[in-house]
Simulated scan of single mutants.
Amino acid sequence: MKKVGILGGTFDPPHLGHLFIAQEVQYKLELDEVWFIPAYEAPHKRKSRTDAVLRLEMVEAAIAENPYFRMESIEVDRLGKSYTFDTMELLQEMHPDTAFHFIIGADLVESLHTWHRIDDLVDKLTFVGVGRPGYELMTTYPVTYVDIPELEISSSMIRERVKQGAPVHYLVSGAVFDIIKEQKLYAER
């Protein structure tokens, strides 16, 4: 059976923290691949101001050099709010011989009790929790913990730095930086 990690999010923008988490979990759990799944609209966040097509382009650019990474546009193609349960149901229909490992940060581990159809979801996949500064990996739901060095990088921090004119070169890949610059993303409007 193929073992695939899923890393979902708005990826507005995708940053080196996302790539590092995916690499560490792939390596430590011996996953065949990690699929990045940008949300069209995350149910727990404000709607992204960055167009979904641009976010897909940034994810593709960010992961291009890693043969274990691929992007899956299923949530953007579907439009609307992206609920993990619905996405995983579709992915399991499309890939019945795949065991999915859903990678989440400690902030999401702590909020699993609020997820749509969480009791059904834990039967469909393995949650993989990784540390995040300021959070504990605490939940009553089954989670496989992977210990990785914590990087304090967030998409919101990168957007704020761009808005202020601060450098972000070593927080995002060069290809993502080029897209941010070319498209004038996150700058004061």
Rank of each mutant, 00 (worst) to 15 (best):
E57F: 04
S82H: 01
M71D: 02
K81E: 08
T98M: 03
E75D: 15
L90N: 07
N66K: 14
E75N: 07
E110G: 13
L56S: 05
E75K: 05
D77Q: 15
G105N: 15
Y68D: 07
D77I: 13
R55K: 09
T98H: 06
G105M: 15
V109T: 12
P96Y: 12
S82M: 00
S82I: 00
F102K: 12
P96C: 09
M94F: 04
S82P: 00
M71L: 13
M88R: 03
R70G: 00
F100M: 05
E57V: 06
D77M: 14
K81A: 07
F69W: 09
L108I: 09
D97K: 07
T87L: 07
Q92G: 04
F102S: 08
Y68T: 11
M94Y: 05
N66P: 08
L91V: 04
A62V: 13
I63Q: 13
F102H: 13
L54D: 13
T87E: 09
P96M: 12
L54A: 06
H101K: 03
D97Y: 04
L56Q: 10
I103F: 03
T98F: 03
A99L: 05
E75Y: 11
D97V: 02
I63H: 11
D97F: 04
D86W: 01
A62D: 13
E110Y: 01
D86F: 02
E93G: 08
Q92N: 10
V109P: 15
E57H: 12
P67H: 11
A106Y: 02
L90A: 14
E89I: 08
E72M: 11
I104W: 02
F102V: 10
H101G: 00
Y83K: 00
E72G: 05
Y68E: 06
I104M: 05
A61P: 00
P96Q: 12
R78E: 05
L90M: 15
P96V: 11
R78D: 03
P96K: 11
L79D: 05
I63G: 07
S73V: 01
L108C: 13
I74N: 02
F85S: 03
E110W: 00
H95Y: 12
F69H: 06
E89G: 11
S82A: 10
R78S: 05
R55G: 01
I74G: 00
A64P: 00
Y83L: 02
E89N: 14
A62H: 13
